[in-house]
Design a protein around this nucleic acid. Structure first.
Length: 115
DNA sequence: CCCTTGACTATCT
DNA sequence: GAGATAGCCAAGG
């Protein structure tokens, strides 16, 4: 029997499992996509308690930074997984395979805009 | 029922 | 831009 009591967890699993390879979503985006806005924090709990293996590493913060402490084991772990997915890391931020080819990205890549 | 915690986010200083 | 504060919601003690 499946646990249908929590539509919440189920919706989160569905959304996260739908994230394409090389693509990332923020907690708030996942929560809203699942139909539960403001539940960003619940997303983490849902993924962690999820009975199935979810691509949790494709879920990042709203700033596209990893949710763990920089240098920590889980941080390096997620970073490694994303790198395998084709995601690029720069300045502590993650860049999907389809970044916005704007100068904003250029600033991120260089850390600072050219003089 | 009250308080604390958490893989969050937005706003202000 | 970084640190502090507030808002947010659910689960557990």
């Amino acid at each position: 029997m499946y646990k249908s009591g929590g539509k919440f967890d189920d919706a989160i699993q569905s959304v996260v499992s739908r994230i394409a390879t090389g693509q990332v979503m923020s907690y708030g985006e996942v929560a809203q996509a699942a139909g539960y806005p403001r539940h960003a924090r619940m997303v983490s709990k849902a993924m962690r308690q999820s009975p199935v293996s979810l691509p949790w590493h494709r879920v990042v913060r709203s700033d596209r930074t990893l949710a763990f402490e920089v240098g920590s084991e889980p941080y390096q772990n997620q970073k490694n997984l994303l790198c395998k997915e084709g995601v690029t890391f720069c300045n502590g931020k993650v860049i999907p395979e389809h970044p916005t080819m704007d100068m904003d990205l250029g600033e991120v890549l260089w850390g600072t805009p050219p003089d």
